[in-house]
Amino acid sequence: MQSLDVILREQKIFEGLREEDHKLIAGCAFNTHFEANQYIFREGENADTFYIIRYGTVGLELRNPKGGIITVQTLREGDVLGWSWLFEPYRWTYDAHAISMVRAVALDGRCLRTKCDHDHTLGYELMRRFAHIMVERLQATRMQVLDLYA
């Protein structure tokens, strides 16, 4: 079995960080898994963790005001799940639903953000990388609004 450190170094989100940052990140990480149909987190809960999906599919769900649930996006292997840990008030804004069995690396967001507050170089790097993910997701959402296939 590969060590967490090696696995994390291969993730795009952490590519090119300083050696000390890799060590720090590995220190904040642990392996986890979720059964199919389990909720990884729910809207409104404290957001103190984020995940890098290693296997399986996660649905990001919103509760439809008219009743029922809408899946707005699915995430798969290699995708990063969650950025609310980085921004106040540190609460999830949607439900994350394991559609299949999911294996992931969980990262302690509270530990990392405290570190970022003190080390702005790391803080800037992580902020930049998460902003990139957010831009991509925002763009994808905009395209959904366009009703691309009409």
Binding site: T57, G68, I69, T71, Q73, R76, G78, I99, Q144, L148
Partner: peptide, 22 residues
């Protein structure tokens, strides 16, 4: 992949362009 799905859909949700990077 589909843009909108209810819980009965087990597949991908999101625009097709999301699938290209991987």
């Amino acid at each position: 992949t589909v843009d909108y799905a209810d819980k009965s859909w087990r597949g991908n949700v999101g625009v097709v362009t999301n699938l290209i990077p991987k």
